[in-house]
Structure formats: C-alpha cells, structure tokens
Design a binder for these strands. Structure first.
Lengths: 101, 101
DNA sequence: CCCATCCGTAAGCAATCACTTACACTCACT
DNA sequence: AGTGAGTGTAAGTGATTGCTTACGGATGGG
C-alpha cells in the first residue's frame, strides 16, 4: 500500500498534518521546515505520487491539499495491522496454553 | 518507537508471524526463507535488539520467542497512528466547513 | 519585453539497509 | 581431544533514500 510507504517518513507526516488546516502552497509548506525548499518539493512529489495529496495550480502557485480518501485508507490499513498483531498475540497465547496444558 | 522500525521489514514481520506458533530455533526459522541463514540471523538480532523477540540458549541452539509486551505495544502504536490520521481527517473536514460556510 | 517570484528537476553525495560469502565460536558427543 | 551441528559476526556490495546546490521553466507585473 503506497500511501503508507509514503507516510513512513517523519517529514512527510508533518507535511500532511500541516495540511490538516487546509490548502497551502509549496513555499509556505517549506517555510515550516529547516530543510531546503527543493527537499520539501521532493517530499511533496512523493506525497502526490502516493495519492496522499493533490495539487492544483493557481497562477504561479501550486496549492497542495490532502486527499481524504487515501488518508482514510491509510488509517484503515494501520488499524488492520494493529489487529493483525493482536491476532498473532492471541495465537501465541493459544500455543502457550497447549504447551502448558 | 523501535518495535515498529523493526517491524517495517516484511521478512521480519514474517518471522514474528512464524513465531506465533511458539518458540523456534534459528535454523528452523531460516528454513522458511529463501535468504541465507546469516541474513535471517541478522534479522533475528534486529528483532531482539528491538525487544520484539527474546532468546534463550538450550545446548547448542538458540530458541527465539515473541515478547508479547512489545508486540502489544506495537499494536497499540499502530492503533494510535490510525486514530491520529482520523483526527487529521476530522480537522480537515472542519477546515473545509469553515471555508464553505 | 524584462524581471522577480514561485516552483520543479537534475546531478551528486552520504547514510542506511538487506544481502552474500567467509570465518569463528560454543556445545554435545565420542 | 577431536568432530560436527548450530549459530553469530565481519567485511564487502548494490540498491534505496533524503539532502544539498545549481539550474530551468512558467506566470504575472511594470
């Protein structure tokens, strides 16, 4: 699932959280980070490729916005993973019961 | 959170799932993978360092076992992340409401 | 038309990571 | 003590990744 590979990077997670407040242009976003503007631009590209963000051009600016669907999908995936490990723990418990019983 | 960095690798996830059935020694674990035994040994080291697995020595063997506490912690972390993105989505929705209202 | 602003892309670099082969160590058994 | 099974460690390699600097393209105002 690519939205999650994309959200693996802490800087990218912060970008997404920043956009929780609404649309922002590239320069404004970059202003919140100590990295260079091109570095942030590259992160934005990864986020767009991963479907987490969408862009629209307004004049000379590029406005970035969260794609709620993909973020919801990421959230669901995380929940599913959490449940997966819970199941592993359940299985482990059963195995231990068999061992001791 | 290191248990999660550790579980980022697919091979390591498979190892943990393999150990859901109970304790196994290093050679048996390695037998389930196409990678070399040393490669798996290194993964096991990472898993132990990350607190996901524990080892005990029995004769010449090393028996690996899941540490339920750390795995539960990982599961909780995943849930928390899922909720975090849900909150981001909620915030986004509020921002859009303000924008259009 | 010229210039400043906004922004992506190209190229190069350093760090990280998973893998492989080769080697070394420990323990059990004889 | 010698041998073999079980296993970790060292060293080298190729791929990936995030960062930086330098550059180029597009848009809008004078």
């Amino acid at each position: 699932m690519s939205a999650l590979d994309v959200l693996a990077d802490p800087t990218r997670r912060r970008i997404v959280e920043l956009l929780a407040g609404g649309e922002l242009n590239a320069t404004t976003i970059a202003g919140h980070f100590s990295s260079s503007r091109p570095a942030i631009s590259q992160h934005l590209g990864v986020l767009v490729d991963g479907g987490v963000l969408t862009v629209r051009r307004v004049g000379t600016q590029r406005l970035y916005r969260i794609d709620p669907a993909s973020l919801a999908e990421a959230s669901d995936w995380l929940s599913a993973q959490a449940h997966r490990w819970e199941r592993v723990l359940d299985a482990l418990e059963s195995a231990l019961d068999e061992g001791t019983g």
